[in-house]
Design a binder for these strands. Structure first.
Lengths: 128, 128
DNA sequence: CAGAATCCTATACGATACTG
DNA sequence: CAGTATCGTATAGGATTCTG
């Protein structure tokens, strides 16, 4: 038994907030601290696990793997494995994520516009 | 002193993730569990504190106040107080938030499209 | 009415070590 | 290479009470 934990108000509320607002619904899908970053880099093309790791040095293995898994569950990224001896795994955006693309780009532009200097290092990099 | 807490890797990383990705930068501004919902309802026009509370019954006073404060600090909402005896406070979107409007609407559409049934109760409601 | 203050807990995240 | 497992902690968020 060990205390069923009763689903914690917190989690219930997360569900409620999604129902109250479609934006929040989307936000919760891309809402990890790194999920957007992952999507951002995948927008410039499919990438391997290790490539993502290199592109986002600050992320830990755990978060990368976990977020990729969640993104896959939410059908935003597709995973393709070559069962070679050193395994190779390619992650790419799904059509569903492609629909998010304009939104994400709009947000990126908003962010860059809002703080140009901060993001000069990114200009024209990850995004085609 | 009581343990300076040393800024916790976690918080550092939040900063780093913002630098790594302009989307994340924006996300962090609208990323509370209720912030978007607040913005969403404010999009249909200025609202009083108590109106917001009524519109979002599940939110606690604490979160509402806290998020409003943060949104104000990030210049996304404006606060106007009438120093009457029963105080009246009106919150509204700032021009900065108006620039987010298309993005938020696009996300809302995305969410609704993604899960039409779930959001039928909202159709044509909060958003003009 | 509009909020600030206090207290508490679930959970998201980080660090590290291990595996097919 | 591409992960999974385990453990520890900071923090977001909830409940409740108090105030100008």
């Amino acid at each position: 038994m060990t205390k069923v934990k009763e689903q914690s108000t917190r989690n219930q509320n997360k569900g409620i907030s999604e129902l109250a607002c479609p934006i929040t619904y989307v936000m919760n899908k891309i809402g990890g601290n790194w999920k957007c970053t992952i999507l951002y880099y995948l927008m410039s093309g499919p990438k391997r696990y290790s490539e993502l790791k290199k592109l986002i040095p600050a992320i830990t293995e755990k978060m990368l793997a976990q977020h990729l898994k969640q993104l896959k569950e939410d059908n935003l990224v597709a995973k393709k494995e070559e069962q070679e001896k050193p395994p190779i795994t390619i992650y790419s955006l799904t059509p569903a994520a492609d629909e998010l693309r304009p939104i994400l780009l709009a947000m990126a532009e908003g962010g860059i516009k809002d703080n140009k200097k901060q993001f000069q290092h990114l200009m024209g990099e990850a995004v085609s």
